[in-house]
């Protein structure tokens, strides 16, 4: 436990939410993209968050949360280390079929496979990412205030 560990924890949250925002922006930008390098229309991507835990052996009980849960006490000694983006995965749901015979990518029946991106859902996710980012900023500012208070001890 160091004076800057809270800063680092909040920074992992900021980085993860920012990456999530990048992925959402990419989804919105590609809401009408019918061509990709793989041949199929663009697929919605989403981030998978994973909790970072204390390194094993860095003091306290086992670093793994699942171990702590298995102990049945619900008590684990070392605080967590923030969050990380474990993966960016593609949404496997089928593409949206739109009837548009004039489209160059239309199939024999005149249907175009459009990306499985739902713009409304992306906007909702975007608000969620923004709010989570703001919450991390608030936590970071609180850490700063506390560190400055600690520096003021013994002055004046």
């Amino acid at each position: 436990m160091g004076i800057f560990s809270s800063f680092r924890i909040s920074a992992t949250g900021l980085a993860a939410e920012r990456l999530r925002m990048d992925v959402i922006a990419n989804n919105i930008a590609n809401v009408n993209t019918t061509r990709t390098e793989d041949g199929h229309p663009y697929r919605r991507r989403q981030v998978v968050f994973q909790a970072l835990t204390a390194r094993p052996g860095s003091g306290g009980g086992g670093g793994d949360r699942s171990d702590a849960a298995g102990a049945g006490l619900g008590v684990s000694e070392a605080p967590g280390r923030g969050v990380m983006v474990a993966a960016i995965v593609e949404d496997p749901s089928p593409p949206r079929m739109v009837y548009d015979p004039g489209h160059p990518d239309a199939d024999a029946r005149g249907y175009v496979a459009m990306p499985n991106v739902d713009a409304v859902r992306e906007l909702v996710d975007m608000i969620s990412a923004t709010r989570a980012y703001e919450a991390n900023v608030t936590a970071l500012n609180a850490a700063k205030t506390m560190a400055m208070r600690a520096l003021d001890i013994g002055r004046g």
Binding site: M1, S5, S6, I9, S10, T12, G13, A16, E17, R20, F49, Q50, A51, P79, G80, R81, G82, V83, S128, A129, A132, A135, N136, T138, A139, L140, A142, A143, M146
Partner: peptide
């Protein structure tokens, strides 16, 4: 504070 920061960072972690 550290634990709260960790909770906030993981607000969207399933």
């Amino acid at each position: 504070h550290e634990v709260i920061a960790d909770n906030i960072a993981n607000v969207n972690t399933p």
